[in-house]
Design a protein around this nucleic acid. Sequence first.
DNA 1: ACCGTCATGTAATCGGTTACATGATTCT
DNA 2: AGAATCATGTAACCGATTACATGACGGT
Lengths: 171, 171
Amino acid sequence: MEVITLTPTSYIVLGLVRYAGEATPYALKQMAAATVGNFFSIPHSQIYAEPARLAKAGYLSVRQEESGRRRKHYELTEKGKIALADWLETPTGELYELRDPGLLKLALGGDPVALAHAQIPVHEERLEHFQTIRRVLEASGMPGDELLIVDAGIGHEREYLRFWRKVADPN
Amino acid sequence: MEVITLTPTSYIVLGLVRYAGEATPYALKQMAAATVGNFFSIPHSQIYAEPARLAKAGYLSVRQEESGRRRKHYELTEKGKIALADWLETPTGELYELRDPGLLKLALGGDPVALAHAQIPVHEERLEHFQTIRRVLEASGMPGDELLIVDAGIGHEREYLRFWRKVADPN
DNA sequence: ACCGTCATGTAATCGGTTACATGATTCT
DNA sequence: AGAATCATGTAACCGATTACATGACGGT
């Protein structure tokens, strides 16, 4: 049994597996794309590699199909459940990191107005994207908690638009 | 001359070196901490490794002190200037990534109220931090452009506080 | 002369990214 | 039956992180 350190990616996988009960990597990929994928990018190769890594360390159990696609189905082990619960139970005071190419260029001397004109449309698009998701979730009777993350996204997109619009046209 | 791909870290180093004209790794570290370090974390080992990497690929030139600390002073080469200018000139439509442990726990089932109580104070602190920086920069007659990044930080912190306060107490 | 902090690096490991590759369904 | 796309991986490389280690400088 190998010893590994659990990264944010690890917890994403553990969390999604718990949510699904049992999941194939592809299912995880779909789930991630619809939820945390909006904030964290996770390349699909990681979505295959990480469960394998977690399984080797005993956090997940695997069951492989005998025929056809021979997909691997992952499930939380006791160890996995505990690790996830521990992590979730500890409210974190850690701060975020914002890896934003637009802001980075701005900070390093890029032309503010040109950047603003490039950024505004993509943020508008993304705001609409989040709002659509929110409407869909709301209509499907999703409990309020599940909407929180989407609301966070919407709030930040609005903030981004306020910011870049002001940069583009600072009265 | 090695061929490397330029990462965001590379551009941070190139940008800071350009800003300083010539810089030692330690100076870069200080500069980064005061500016982009507020959004991107860069461990100090990278601040030493990255200029070396850039120098090997011809983006920076090195001059090492003969005695004492034998520090290495880096300067942009023509190649470095061009690479940086090219990057800055291309307004990016790429989107940000938000690596936020608090939001991640929230998304994966952490207790919203407990998370909010842990997050609010650190965001309050950080908002004050940015506001202090802003006042200092403003008082030192810094041109408006340099304040933009700080304003972006302030805006996002306010948004975070709005969000978490609402989570803690959703009327 | 000593001590704390400032400053500067190196070594080793590993997760993440990119690129490559292929089998299984579904649709026309 | 063939094409397109869905689904599932592997291989190789490398930047980032962690941990270790040490020399120089400034103050007492």
